[in-house]
Structures are given as C-alpha cells and as structure tokens.
Amino acid sequence: VLLLKIRATRSCRGISLKTQELYALVFICRYLDLFYSYISLYNTVMKVTYLATAFSIVRYMRFDKVVRQTYDKEQDTFRYIFLIAPCALLALVLNHRFSPTEVLWTFSIYLEAVAILPQLVLMQRTQNIDNLTANYVALLGAYRGFYILNWIYRFATEKHYRQWIVWISGVAQTALYADFFYYYALCWKANQRLQLPA
C-alpha cells in the first residue's frame, strides 16, 4: 500500500522515514534465518518480499529525485536511539537463548512493537493526513492485531506453542495503535478525512 502511494503520487508526504528505516532494520535482524533454515516457500517468499519492499521504500524516500523532496525532515524528529537502545538492552536480557541470531531475532520483535511511534508522532503533527497514509497505518496495525487471533488458535491446537516474548510484544504493538484506531474508526464512520487531535 505504501509503495503504491509513493509510486502513484510521486510523493512520500506524511510518511516517517524513521519508521521505514526501523522496519528495514527489523526485517534484517529477524530474517537472518533465511540463510540457515527453511520453513516453507510461502514463508521465504514473504520474508524476501518484506525486505525488498522495506528497502525499496527507504530508497525512494532517500534517493529518488522527486520523492525525496516531499519528505518533511523537520517534522520527522523522533530519535532512533530512544527506541533502538532500550530494545537492544531488553533483547540482551530477555531472550530464549543467548546466541547472536537469537538475540537479534528478539531485538527485532521488541523493535517492531515500537517502530510505528515516529509515524504516529508525525501524523499527529500533520493537518491533512492522506487517505492512503491512514489506510497504510491501519493495515499495519491490523496485521499484528490479527496475529493475536492466530496465536490463540495455535495455542489451543499445538502442543509446544509457547511464545511469550512474541505474544507480549505483539499485544503491546497492537495496543500502541488503539488510540489511532479509535479516531480512524470515528472518521471512517463519519465519512471524513482522518484528523488526529493534537
């Protein structure tokens, strides 16, 4: 959805480069297992797709002659270090096994939970939020939100399905969207363009 917006409108207005770069980092750290484990063709294709689209979006926003001029750097002020440092620290302490790939995987789980924050802050400062931007954020939130249903199903049907790091992070991630979803639903019901209160 985001690539569609950027390519069709030649603009990344209202999109946080910080969030996009954090997602690229999340996918790098999480999908290192592409090199040493195979789960299914679907799983591999989706991992490669996420990596490719994340990097493509960052490339457009940073280097495309037209698109990069629409990036509002002054408004996108969230500091990377405030998200990366606590997640890295937490991953070093709270993990299933203290190995490089496992710690990086855990770091990616924690970082994904909070990676939306720069985007949410930027949207709060934006007067006219594009429909595509609003839909993109809603879909991103719904993506992990729907996982919760899947986790309940898997917990009930699979014997060794215990993933508390993933569950807690996923619920926290979804909770961060709660406020956004509330206003998204209100505006959708009223058939109005999304506006977030300051």
Binding site: D33, W105, R162
Partner: peptide, 10 residues
C-alpha cells in the same frame, strides 16, 4: 531445543 527455536512466523 524446544519448538520455540523454530521461528515460523513473519
């Protein structure tokens, strides 16, 4: 190792 080592979710 238990099942947790197999990260099959995206």
């Amino acid at each position: 190792d238990g099942e947790w080592a197999r990260h099959d979710e995206l």
